[in-house]
């Protein structure tokens, strides 16, 4: 009985962390599909989401060296989430115009470096505005969790699982059953053709950046009560999420979700049964094996370079 409970506990933690990887991976994939570029700042969207919550729920400490006065703000939790999503949307637009748009006609490498630069810039901006101390964040639901049959279900992890399911359902509906979703799909498949058909490609790409920035921000907000809000919180998650996109199939939406959850669960079980210190290695071992035996990923189609 206890063995079963322990295994379920490990499974639950794996699923929950995997969902976070999946959410960030989803953001990766959307941008890959729209622009053919891996956005190295995707993890920092999660970090920004966390700090936006700190801003609205607690305030900003200020920075005497930059002559920035600190201030306090104590908004209700729901309003803070709405405002944080708004901030993430604005960041998405700014990211599009500041990081991607000026380089849109260049090969993918300059854009990639540009997102890497944005990542460093964002982390250091936050370091200057909020001091480097990690901060706690309240949970969405004000109870710690429930214990069912010896398995402790953290309320925040339950929220994460529910949100992931909703986000995936929304995304499916949005892309498959709305006109704008279909336009986004067309844009990601062939920009020139989409343009010929009268689809405003520039707008579609802005929408993609906004969407994936908000999604990344939400992942950060959801995970912050457990992993705390810190400058580096996005980096570890992004690395695993990136592995998830490759395992799932580079640029495949379903693949990103499945890949994220696979990594979360593998990590969790391998840590429990084999060894904790090498936990991070298992995710990348899985990545390595997939690259060896199924380089296109689980859901990826085997395609040669487009002519």
């Amino acid at each position: 009985m206890e063995v079963l409970a322990n295994n379920l506990q490990v499974l639950f933690q794996g699923l929950a962390l995997g969902s976070i990887y999946a959410l960030v991976a989803l953001g990766f994939v959307l941008i890959i599909r729209a622009t053919n570029v891996v956005n190295f700042a995707q993890g920092d969207f999660a970090m920004l989401g966390g700090y936006a919550m700190v801003l609205f729920l607690v305030g900003m400490p200020g920075n005497p060296e930059l002559h920035l006065p600190g201030f306090e703000m104590h908004l209700p939790y729901w309003l803070a989430i709405v405002l944080a999503a708004g901030v993430m949307a604005i960041i998405g637009v700014a990211f599009n115009y500041g990081v991607y748009y000026p380089l849109r006609n260049r090969p993918f490498l300059p854009v990639l470096i540009s997102t890497l630069g944005a990542s460093i810039f964002l982390q250091n901006t936050i370091l200057a505005l909020f001091n480097p101390q990690p901060r706690p964040l309240d949970k969405l639901i004000n109870i710690d969790g429930v214990t069912i049959g010896g398995v402790f279900l953290d309320s925040q992890y339950l929220v994460i699982l529910v949100f992931t399911i909703l986000a995936v359902a929304f995304q499916y509906f949005f892309f498959e059953h709305t006109l704008i979703g279909k336009k986004l799909q067309a844009t990601s498949q062939d920009k020139d053709m989409a343009r010929l058909l009268g689809i405003p490609v520039t707008w579609m790409i802005i929408i993609t950046f906004v969407y994936s920035s908000v999604l990344g921000g939400m992942a950060g907000i959801l995970v912050a009560p457990i992993l705390f809000v810190s400058i580096g919180m996005g980096s570890t998650i992004a690395l695993k999420a990136f592995a998830a996109t490759i395992i799932g199939g580079f640029g495949d939406v379903a693949g990103a979700i499945v890949g994220g959850i696979i990594i979360g669960v593998i990590e969790s079980f391998a840590a429990y049964y084999i060894s904790v210190p090498y936990k991070d290695a298992y995710a990348f071992l899985a990545l390595f094996l997939v690259l060896l035996f199924r380089p296109q990923g689980i859901f990826g189609e085997k395609v040669s370079e487009k002519a």
């Binding site: 322990n6 506990q9 490990v10 570890t236 840590a271 904790v276 936990k279």
Partner: peptide, 14 residues
């Protein structure tokens, strides 16, 4: 043992 910046300590706790 565990490596720094672990996100989950459930296996250790168990």
């Amino acid at each position: 043992g565990y490596t720094n910046n672990s996100q989950d300590f459930t296996p250790i706790v168990l």
